[in-house]
Design a protein around this nucleic acid. Structure first.
Lengths: 399, 399
DNA sequence: TGCACTTAATTTAGGAGTCAAAGAAAGTTG
DNA sequence: CAACTTTCTTTGACTCCTAAATTAAGTGCA
């Protein structure tokens, strides 16, 4: 009950333009006549707006369709040759950057590791990665309509700042201004899990999902929450901090200072810790012969589990159980249509997924469980960069 | 990405009409000129729309304001003398019904107990309670623009049915059709906790809150979730089923069949059970002298706690701790700006609230906790009926 | 091949709604 | 009481959509 806003004729045109763009995106290649039928908008209006869109190169004519007994239709498509975005996935140890067209196709991709985590080092890595990906495709930035970035931690999307990024030890670092100045295009940032959710919404499994959650389980644990077809950020950009919900009374300390948090039980670090604790308790494992304790990673535990190592399998199954409890909480609270899992753990395969499913069916209210899909992302390793790029792409389709 | 809709001039007019109504609601009594300044809409446009609204009696002129150096303004207000709604709160043992005007004022209120929980009995109670409240104010239903109802359990708001109401043992009971036929006005229903949240949004503490949660703790435990200024119902109307999130490893069985659910630890029943278990363990309590074991209720435990009974105090504090864990989960997941607590437990005062606060500050991510208000509702015992009525009222202010 | 019928896209005339400017109504101020 | 202010309405222009007519380009059958 705060902002009360008016509407004028420009709003109508904007709404109808976006409707036409959405229709072309979803059903294209498509003729003007079919757009008119799909939206219910008068053919004359469609013609007029399409003319504008062709003029500003948002769309293009891509040939002639089949006649259905009369004049052949002219088919329209989004202009993927002229509408590029840059998507930047700022990870804990490296930055991955992609040049992406409006259809979500990756034209070029590069990764740069950074040694230290100062603002300067990471900004420099981001900058050169962007110049790298555009070099061969659009070196003058003519067709790049914007840059999107996903960064871990708490992000103020309005002021374009990292409020708090634990892994970098950043506090109130302005990110957007630097890159806007450097590249002279719109720059948008958001939290990594949220950006991944956006990617799956625009180009992944969640296309037709109004309400879903992307759970990112890696070094940390976070969720991107989609509600009513929109990213939900919460009151202070803190929605989806599910890494710190309590899932057990066990006395495992989380880096947040409390005990029994989801993150303390299922992050990559947590998996390794439980494995090592198993060894200390006298359990045997073939992984112990292969690696020093300090070299054990969750990925290695997964590899060993595939070979049949009992301790590895047990640790992964436990992890699945804990994730299941967390997911159960999310389902009961939000009743989403799907839960997509990203991050390192998502690769640990059926050891984890089976156990998640077992736990869920035991713990969820029946009705919320109906039709809820739980599984990997469609975009896999590219979910970060495609999602980041989607921050820009979605704005083209927004009022 | 499903429904792609067009916009025409009627949409503009509808938007502007609603904007004017909202402005009158929020700032009224207010002049046409001030409405124009508030919204940024042209004075001529405001005049034209106001004329329509006066004609259809949605608003009324309520006198002349003070001059600020020129012609005196004509002040406008919502027409609370002609815009009534009926709000029905269908509880577990009784139905409470109110006649409410557009400003949320209760003109009349009645309660009817029902002996059994058959559809016929409860429908009959609802029906007579409605006739009762309108009798003296608007016996011909001239000014009642609709009936809203809050019912526990899972509600299909689109088809107007109770999908599942555990306390009544209802499955797929159509509610709306019956009363629409009987009273010939729009009838809307929703889940009880959700309806309460709506009431606090329109007439309570949550007026200026975009994102908040109302936690209803009584016989069952449920939440009404407001996101982006709208009720969030989830994918199958199941959002806010927080009664069945796991908050402890303790082996307390919930009626849903699982263990350690929030509801199993904090519902009225759960409080009583823990108290009795305390007695069985040999603890003493002054309440034991006053009541038979089978007559103990959570309200009596609260009363005894006020008198200083140690076991009662302990049980309530434990309850506060468990609620705190649940709220902590909600805050970390949804980052709301406030959590309002309704239902029987909300009356148990500071024994519970203090403990909730203690638990939260220990368990919540710092940033999500910032500015989060946790407390009782403003509408108190009327939150159910006012909320139910708001189901109708909100539609007047919606596009 | 030619004519009737279809379908696609554009042009044209007209209507609905907002806006800016001017005017009418009703006050205040010195 | 004249000059200025403020409120509200009227008027005409402008924008954007719609329906109908027109142009463009087919198909299909005799």
């Amino acid at each position: 009950m705060k902002t009360i806003s008016k509407a004028d004729k420009k709003l109508i045109k904007k709404i109808n333009t976006v409707s036409i763009l959405k229709t072309i995106r979803e059903y294209g290649p498509i003729s003007r006549a079919d757009i008119s039928k799909t939206i219910g908008l008068n053919p004359a209006t469609v013609s007029s707006i399409v003319t504008n869109l062709l003029k500003n190169k948002s769309i293009k004519e891509v040939g002639i369709g089949k006649s259905s007994g009369g004049r052949k239709p002219v088919l329209l498509e989004l202009n993927s040759d002229e509408l590029y975005v840059v998507g930047v996935d700022v990870g804990i140890t490296k930055v991955t950057t992609g040049l992406i067209n409006i259809n979500g196709n990756i034209l070029n991709k590069t990764t740069i590791d950074f040694k230290d985590k100062t603002v300067e080092t990471i900004f420099e890595a981001i900058k050169s990665s962007i110049y790298e990906v555009i070099k061969e495709h659009d070196k003058n930035f003519n067709n790049v309509i914007g840059i999107g970035m996903g960064v871990h931690g708490l992000i103020d999307t309005e002021r374009g700042m990292s409020i708090y990024a634990p892994a970098f030890n950043w506090n109130n670092v302005n990110i957007v201004d630097t890159f806007k100045k450097e590249f002279n295009v719109p720059v948008l940032i958001d939290n990594d899990a949220r950006v991944m959710a956006l990617g799956e919404k625009w180009f992944g499994y969640a296309k037709n999902s109004k309400n879903f959650v992307l759970l990112n389980i890696g070094t940390g644990v976070g969720a991107g929450v989609f509600i009513n077809d929109a990213l939900y950020r919460g009151n202070n950009f803190g929605a989806g901090e599910v890494g710190h919900i309590k899932i057990t009374d066990e006395n495992i300390k989380c880096r947040c200072g409390r005990y029994g948090c989801l993150e303390a039980m299922v992050s990559g670090r947590a998996i390794v810790n439980r494995f090592i604790k198993g060894l200390e308790k006298g359990r045997t494992s073939s992984l112990k012969d292969r690696l020093k304790t300090s070299d054990i990673t969750s990925l290695e535990i997964y590899r060993e589990a595939l070979k049949g190592d009992l301790l590895s399998i047990e640790v992964l199954k436990e992890t699945g159980k804990y994730i299941g409890i967390g997911i159960s909480t999310i389902i009961n609270t939000l009743n989403p249509s799907m839960i997509l899992i990203a991050g390192g753990v998502s690769k640990a395969g059926d050891f984890i997924y089976d156990e998640i499913q077992n736990t869920i069916s035991k713990k969820s209210m029946n009705n919320n469980l109906k039709n809820v899909y739980i599984g990997e992302t469609k975009l896999k390793d590219n979910v970060g960069i495609v999602g980041a790029g989607s921050l820009i792409i979605k704005d083209i389709f927004s009022i």
